[in-house]
């Protein structure tokens, strides 16, 4: 969906800023907010670009950099840390060949760290796009990534 159509769905009220940014980002194939997106949103809501930029960079769910087709977010909170997320993170970096905040060369995966996902009963856990993967172990990582890679 194009940006103007998305903007038109909302009243031009600052109250809608977060929802608009979510919506534009969710509809972006590269899951990010471009500087044009921020500019258009600022104009639509009659806010300054610096203000919208300030909001977009405050929240961790928004990205101002293009991201891969899939976003892998591994939980780094104390419960997952206790249950071994450090080893799992290392294995993710090895399997994907990238560090945190980076995207694989083929544009398929971006690896990110996240605070508590609220699924601590199955710690350590991660989310790939909207799917939760729990009870992770180093052995499971390659298989999960391969399955996501080959899906669709």
């Amino acid at each position: 969906m194009n940006r103007d159509k998305i903007l038109k769905r909302y009243d031009p009220d600052q109250y809608n800023l977060l929802a608009i940014l979510h919506d534009i980002q969710d509809n972006s194939p590269q899951h990010y907010l471009s500087s044009d997106d921020l500019k258009a949103t600022a104009d639509y809501l009659k806010l300054s670009l610096s203000y919208v930029h300030g909001v977009a960079t405050f929240y961790t769910m928004y990205s101002l950099k293009p991201r891969g087709r899939h976003i892998v977010r591994i939980c780094q909170s104390p419960p997952c840390h206790l249950m071994g997320s450090t080893d799992v993170s290392r294995e993710l970096m090895r399997t994907l060949g990238v560090g945190f905040g980076e995207t694989t060369a083929d544009g398929q995966f971006t690896l990110e760290m996240t605070s508590c996902l609220g699924v601590c009963g199955v710690a350590p856990a991660m989310m790939i796009d909207d799917e939760v993967y729990g009870n992770l172990s180093v052995e499971k990582i390659e298989r999960i990534i391969a399955a996501v890679r080959s899906a669709k």
Binding site: Q14, Y62, S115
Partner: peptide
């Protein structure tokens, strides 16, 4: 929300709600 632990604090939450 959009990913900010501090927004669990009520006045931060209100600020966030206001955009």
């Amino acid at each position: 929300g959009a990913g900010a632990y501090v927004c669990g604090e009520e006045t931060s939450l209100i600020e966030s709600l206001e955009g």
